[in-house]
Amino acid sequence: MRAIFQSKIFAILTILLTLLVIWYAMAVKLNTPWQLGVYERAGTTAWTTSQFINDTLNQKRPVLPSAHQVFSEMYVTIFQKPITSKRSLVYHSWITLSATLLGFAIGTLFGILIAIGITNNKALDRSLMPWVIASQTIPILAIAPMIIVVLNAIGLSGLLPKALISTYLSFFPIVVGMVKGFRSPKNIQLDLMQTYFASPMQIFFKLRWPSALPYLFPSMKIAIAIALVGAIVGELPTGAVAGLGARLLSGSYYGQTVQIWSALFMAAILAASLVMIVGLIEKRVTKNMGLTT
């Protein structure tokens, strides 16, 4: 019994349950003014407390939708709509996900290449690294609408512009992590490679690359999470056609709070599963390499 109380799962579940209770309490409180107005207009005077609470939790456009409203909306839009339908959350998630994955792939590749350049060339290290850092102080998410518009003007539209925003966001943690990783071999190890008369290529593939891998995966976890944010924000200015970001925007235009919340939860689930998948690959790779984690 004691073990259960002291376990992590128990603590997390307790806090989640508390949050759920707070959520419902807030939903009742925030939706009360509107519900009172509804009763007044309808002329309903004799309402019981339980009826009132029930009504506040089931409004059509609540200020704060209740949990069961959000989850039933998610259930309906995920499982009960054909996935090609514009009302299907799976359809919108897929659009966002494809941009995320493409951007993440390009960003990772690009980041690794920059890191290779930085670790192998001193001038590049000195001149590029400060600008890689400075590039992240530009709020790229703020430029997102312009990048979309500009790329549209060149003739690029659809997936790629969004993916480029994800790329821009995700390359940074990769560069920082991989520069650290490529530099992690100790002098003694490098000296050993020298005594083997290893070529720079051999040093790279047999020493530097394997020792950088433990740095790659944590960076990739951060990168894929922000790539998703980039794809979502990239969808905001495209005129709200498709994708989770578009769901958020159209929901906010038409006051569909339930739709906003379900899109938000979907994004959360997506982010969590992406990070988890990277984590699983990491476990697999580190196990195969014989590294203890």
Binding site: L141, K221, A225, I232, V233, L264, A267, A271
Partner: peptide
């Protein structure tokens, strides 16, 4: 790790 900007 969540896309918090979505609460905007």
């Amino acid at each position: 790790a969540l896309p918090i900007v979505g609460v905007a």
